[in-house]
Design a protein around this nucleic acid. Structure first.
Length: 252
DNA sequence: ATGGCTTCATAGTGAAGA
């Protein structure tokens, strides 16, 4: 089963790119973040026409997550059950016996800010919930925009970014906490090119200069076998791209 | 250079992202 995560930075703006990517790559499951779309406007017919069903949890202007799948989705969960939050950042569903969890982790703005505190509290709640979820579902895949670069090699300029939001120790500790639940970073199961990133700043020709971060991840429980994990940079080269690009994994 | 682009909501600019 081919699983993908892609922060599209507005599904309305990126719909044609998403449909094009689905047609070309035929993934089984696509997890979307930053759909920025109310549920009543979610493009169900266009995705259906492409052979996909969807579950979604969106809002106007900000956030919004969705799972798009070729297969039936059951036991759909909206939001973290242990964290009251008006921001739509989590959706989960069971697909072919795999618990697929799609997350849009808070950005955190800057270290020490209110939003940073919210990010750390949110991540603690995510970890606590996943601990329970893994008891119920040994086969679990956690895909999304984590807004965390786990290691210095995931940062184009680790010196410039040291201690900054997305790279700070508490954030990296939260990422380690998820791995300590028994989840593995699918991307690092394989030999990968140096300086592999999933996000590049729109400004200052960030993509052309490969000034990026690897902040979009696929974590897999031990019961999930993985044969490939890769970042597809092609959509980042299109006209009006998202600042993030898809990350995908083949699992069995 | 606490900015540089992009999106959204809105009708000139501000918030938010990362």
């Amino acid at each position: 089963m081919k699983l993908v995560t892609w922060n599209v930075n507005s599904l309305r703006v990126r719909l044609e790119q998403v449909l094009g990517w689905l047609a070309e790559n035929q993934p089984d499951v696509l997890c979307l973040q930053e759909t920025k779309t109310e549920d009543s406007n979610f493009p169900v017919p266009a995705l259906q026409q492409a052979g996909y069903q969807a579950v979604f949890s969106g809002q106007k202007t900000y956030n919004g997550v969705a799972i798009v799948s070729k297969f039936a989705m059951t036991e759909v969960q909206y939001g973290l059950p242990n964290f009251e939050d008006p921001q739509k950042r989590v959706i989960a569903a069971t697909i072919n016996g795999v618990r697929v969890v799609c997350v849009y982790v808070p950005n955190g703005e800057s270290v020490g800010s209110e939003k940073y505190q919210y990010k750390l509290a949110w991540l603690a709640a995510l970890q606590a919930w996943l601990k329970d979820e893994l008891q119920r579902y040994p086969k679990l895949a956690l895909l999304g925009d984590y807004n965390i670069a786990p290691e210095d090699r995931d940062v184009h300029d680790p010196v410039a970014w040291v201690g900054k939001v997305l790279c700070s120790e508490p954030e990296r500790a939260a990422f380690s906490g998820l791995r300590q639940l028994g989840l593995r970073d699918a991307f690092r199961l394989f030999e990968q090119p140096e300086k592999s990133f999933s996000w590049w700043d729109y400004r200052m020709m960030g993509f052309r200069r490969n000034h990026g971060l690897r902040i979009d991840h696929i974590l897999l429980s031990d019961a999930v076998d993985c044969s490939t994990c890769s970042i597809d940079k092609a959509p980042r080269k299109l006209e009006r791209p998202s600042d993030h690009t898809p990350v995908w994994a083949d699992i069995t």
